[in-house]
Design a protein around this nucleic acid. Sequence first.
DNA 1: TTGCTACGCTACGGTAGCGTAGCGATAAGC
DNA 2: GCTTATCGCTACGCTACCGTAGCGTAGCAA
Lengths: 201, 201
Amino acid sequence: MKTRKAAKPDPPTQPPGPPSAGRKRVEHSKDKILTTTIELLYEAGLGLSIDEVSRRSGVAKTTIYRHWPVRSALILEACVKLTPEPRAPDHGSFAREIAELIETLAKVLRTARWTGVLPSIVDAAERDPAAARVFGQIQAGHAAPFREVIVRAQRRGELARQIDPDTMVATIIGPLFYRRWFSREPIDKAFTNLLIRQATG
Amino acid sequence: MKTRKAAKPDPPTQPPGPPSAGRKRVEHSKDKILTTTIELLYEAGLGLSIDEVSRRSGVAKTTIYRHWPVRSALILEACVKLTPEPRAPDHGSFAREIAELIETLAKVLRTARWTGVLPSIVDAAERDPAAARVFGQIQAGHAAPFREVIVRAQRRGELARQIDPDTMVATIIGPLFYRRWFSREPIDKAFTNLLIRQATG
DNA sequence: TTGCTACGCTACGGTAGCGTAGCGATAAGC
DNA sequence: GCTTATCGCTACGCTACCGTAGCGTAGCAA
């Protein structure tokens, strides 16, 4: 997503690939605009301005409005591209899988830049239905791998079937999110270990 | 924070200030301004405008600026008054106390209007140190009763001493907050019961 | 070369908000 | 009833931003 060098063989499934020779100008500018928008999201949250996107990206404001009819359209699209799609591991062992998911999420919460933007989206979701839809998508993306691993473990008989998967997801992700955005305490090994014990015990 | 009635004997902690001509008037307008500001916080979050406060409260904008030098000062003060100060119950039984705290918080998260504003404050806290300080205060207020009940139970020997109170608070409040602001699933009896079982089991 | 499309640039019109100035009105406290 | 701090009102100046218009230019394909 950063470098835009050669890389002739275009990966067909990855959208943000570098613009190869055959790429149209349109995609090139849209790319620059989106990249800058995401960068500004990191810094200013949803309050970013189109003028600033134009200034920093070097793309004329008129060009931005040629591709996105209104401000919110661009910002929503940038928000969708913000968080990576996590995947559910499949080791055949619930304990290992849930541990991996917890450790991974913990690391993401410690380091990923988008974590600074999410409250802005949560806030918008409280009032704006469009933002709520986008946020619901992001949120579901976070919860899905946990849910999948839990359901699979229940099917295998590794986990009691009367446990509600969504509830269990909340008891795992909840404390992690709490530490990142609310109490702002460190998410260290001791903390993740406790969560793992609680989930597998 | 509500009505400021007679109370002739001056509260000793508040510096009475110079015996000027219109102290009563000052407090009356400050009251109206703050009340309106909080109302607008509910509706628009931290993005509220001073002009709107003036319009809706009927207090002139100049008067607002006579009491608060800048916009942020008013908003921060309103934020501080936003959430009620919860108190820790003392029944002599950890199970009963923690259950009461969980049920109470659950009900607050389901109904209290300030829950719609908090993401706005969390977001601001990500970038603005002043907002972070205010939010830290609010957050500590939420966690304190839980922490107190846990520490007391440990002193009484009702709870294992090697458990870190802050960690335990996270595992209780975290899932509740998660449901309110992230997954947006209902916080029902089944959910709180599970948390209570998890905390006391 | 021609023609099409996307792009850059400048300049707008319009809105909203912050914070201030000046002046007359008014209510509190003596 | 007199004094004075406080308030309301109108009118600013300033900045930032949204979104658009018009016109000229650069890339690209036939």
